[in-house]
Design a protein around this nucleic acid. Structure first.
Lengths: 137, 137
DNA sequence: ATATTAAATAATAATGATTACTATTACTGA
DNA sequence: TCAGTAATAGTAATCATTATTATTTAATAT
C-alpha cells in the first residue's frame, strides 16, 4: 500500500460519482501533484483485482470506478451521464431463476437508466421557454 | 437505406454473437470489399439511434452490437468474453420497485456473468492434467 | 549505517477504438 | 441532362488505455 494507492482509494471513498480514471487523476493530483496517470490506472486496476473497488463498464468507451465494492445497482442519466447508486432488493434471487444454460453464474450487473431530476428540471425550463416563444408569434 | 446499411443490418441479424464494430466490418467486407470502417461505425450508430439494433457496453472499452433491439438480458463469460442472450422473466416489474429517487426510469440493462460451458470444460481438462502431473511426482 | 535488491513510480511512447474530415461518388427531382 | 443533396471511401486526428524505461522509493541483508 503505497502513498499513491492510499490516496487514490481515499479519494474514491469520498465520492459517490463513479468517476472515470481521468477524473480520479484530477482528484488525486490536488494532493499529489506529481502523480502520473499511468500510476492511477495501474492502482485502480490492482485495487479492483483485490476487490477493494469496482470497475464499471457502463458508458461505453471509458471505464468508471466505484469505491464501494459491494454488489449493488446503478442508475444512469441518459442526458448528462451521471451515475448514482440505488437501493434495489430483488424479490427472488435473480441468479437462481436462470440455471439451465450451461453457464456457472457468478454474479450480475444491473443498471437502470432514465432521466435524473436535474435534467428533468432543465426539460421543464426548455418547454416553458418554447411555449413563451410560440405565444409571441 | 443504402446498400451498405442494408448489408450491415442483415449481417447483424445473422449472428447472435454480439460482435464489435470491427467484427461487423469483417463480416460485411466479405460482401462489400470496399466498405470503409467509418461507414460501419456511422451506420451502427444510426441504426442504434433509430432503435433497429442495440449498442451494448458490456466489455469495458469497446462497444458491442446486438441485432435484436428488444430489451433482453445477456450473459457474459468472464473467461473468453463471449456474450449470449438468455431468457429472463423478472417476477415483478423491476422498474416499479425503484421509484422515489428523482429519476424518471426508462429502462434497464441486466447482465449476468459467469463461466460458459466450454470454458468450464477446459477447466476440467486442466484439472485432470494437473492431477496426472502430480501423481507422477 | 551502508550496500543490495526488488518493487513502484513518473514520464513518455505506443496501441487500439472511435470520431472527424474531405474529396469523391451515388441518388433525386426539376 | 444537370444541380443539389446525402452517403461513402479513405485517411487523419482524437481519446482512453496500456506498455516501456529510466529513476526513485522502500525493504532487506550485510
Amino acid at each position: 500500500m503505497t502513498k499513491q494507492r492510499k490516496v487514490i482509494l481515499e479519494e474514491l471513498h469520498k465520492v459517490t460519482s463513479h468517476p472515470t480514471a481521468d477524473m480520479v487523476y484530477e482528484m488525486v493530483r490536488k494532493r499529489l501533484p506529481h502523480i502520473s496517470l499511468g500510476t492511477v490506472y495501474r492502482n485502480l486496476e490492482d485495487l479492483a483485482d483485490q476487490g477493494e473497488i469496482r470497475k464499471l463498464s457502463i458508458d461505453g468507451t471509458r471505464m468508471r470506478f466505484d469505491g464501494n465494492p459491494e454488489e449493488h445497482t446503478h442508475i444512469r442519466c441518459i442526458v448528462c451521464g451521471r451515475v448514482d447508486d440505488i437501493h434495489f432488493a430483488p424479490t427472488v434471487s435473480m441468479q437462481d431463476s436462470i440455471s439451465d444454460n450451461g453457464y456457472k453464474i457468478l454474479g450480475h450487473k444491473l443498471e437502470f437508466y432514465g432521466k435524473c431530476s436535474e435534467c428533468r428540471k432543465k426539460d421543464e425550463i426548455m418547454k416553458a421557454k418554447e411555449k413563451k416563444r410560440k405565444s409571441k408569434d
